[in-house]
C-alpha cells in the first residue's frame, strides 16, 4: 500500500502501551488525524525526538478508510518554532489558540484555512507575541470563525444589510449575527461599538497578524471587542469540548 505524506502540526500526544505513541495532528488540509507510532519511545528509533510540538512536521502514514487511527511510519521536522515558543508560559498561550481552532473542526471535516491561520500564528509568534492578548484573540477568532462558516457580519449591518460606515452608535449583537448599523433597532444582547472598534474589527479580519502593530493601542476597546466575539462564539458555536 502506498503511504500518505502530509504536513501537519502536533496538537496532542498520549503514550500507548509499552513504548508507542498516539498523536493527534492538525493536517495541512485542515483535518484532524490521529496517528500511531509503534515503538516510538524505543532507544534506537529516534522518532519520538522528531515528534515535536510547535513545529511544522511531515508525516508518513498509511491511510485506511474506516479507521480512526492510522499507523505512521515516519516523521520529519520541516520548520521548528520552538525557539519562539520555548518557555512554558508562551507554550500555554499558543496551546490555547490551538485548542480553540481545533474545536471548530468536526470529525471527517477539513478546513484548510484553519491550518493556515494556526501555522501563520506560529510562524509569526516571535514577532506578534508582544501584541495585546485581547487584540490577538479578537483577530484570531474573527479569522477562524469566518473560515469555519460562522463569521459575524462586520462590514454590513446584520439586520438591514446596509453598509456599516464608520458612524457613531453602531452595536454588535451575537443573536443578530454581527454588527448593527445606527438606524436599526438594537436587540437585547447588543454591545455598543465605537467607530474605532468597528474599524479595528474590520482591519483584524482583513490583515495578517504582523500588521496588527499598525493599530493604535486602546486596550479597553480591544478587551470589549474580544468579549463581544467570545459571546458571539458562545451563542453560535457553544463551549468547545476539551
Amino acid at each position: 500500500m502506498k503511504p500518505t505524506v502530509k504536513k501537519g502540526l502536533l496538537i496532542g500526544r498520549t503514550r500507548y502501551k509499552e513504548s508507542s505513541l498516539i498523536i493527534r495532528t492538525l493536517m495541512e488540509d485542515g483535518s484532524l488525524v490521529s496517528l500511531l507510532f509503534k515503538g516510538a519511545l524505543r532507544r534506537k528509533s529516534g522518532i519520538a525526538g522528531r515528534i515535536r510540538p510547535f513545529a511544522l512536521l511531515e508525516f508518513v502514514y498509511y491511510h485506511r478508510p474506516g479507521k480512526n487511527i492510522y499507523t505512521a511510519s515516519d516523521v520529519e521536522v520541516l520548520e521548528d518554532f520552538s525557539d519562539a515558543v520555548s518557555d512554558y508560559t508562551s507554550q500555554q498561550r499558543v496551546a490555547k489558540f490551538f485548542k480553540k481552532a481545533v474545536s471548530l473542526i468536526k470529525p471527517e471535516q477539513s478546513v484548510p484555512e484553519i491550518f493556515d491561520i494556526v501555522l501563520a500564528l506560529l510562524r509569526e509568534w516571535k514577532e506578534i507575541s508582544s501584541l495585546s492578548e485581547n487584540l490577538l484573540w479578537s483577530g484570531f477568532l474573527l479569522k477562524i470563525m469566518t473560515f469555519a462558516g460562522f463569521s459575524p457580519t462586520i462590514f454590513r449591518c446584520a439586520i438591514c444589510g446596509g453598509k456599516i460606515n464608520h458612524e457613531e452608535n453602531s452595536a454588535f449583537s451575537p443573536s443578530a449575527g454581527g454588527l448593527i448599523c445606527s438606524s436599526c433597532r438594537k436587540p437585547n444582547d447588543a454591545i455598543q461599538f465605537s467607530k474605532e472598534m468597528v474599524k479595528t474589527a474590520q482591519f483584524l479580519l482583513s490583515n495578517s497578524f504582523t500588521k496588527y502593530f499598525k493599530i493604535m493601542p486602546a486596550e479597553d476597546e480591544f478587551k470589549k471587542l474580544n468579549i463581544a466575539l467570545q459571546k458571539f462564539w458562545e451563542y453560535h458555536i457553544g463551549e468547545e469540548k476539551s
Binding site: 524505543r42 532507544r43 529516534g46 519520538a48
Partner: peptide
Amino acid sequence: GISSGSDLEFAD
C-alpha cells in the same frame, strides 16, 4: 547520550 525523545527507562 540518551537518544532524543526517548525515555530514561529505555536506556541501558
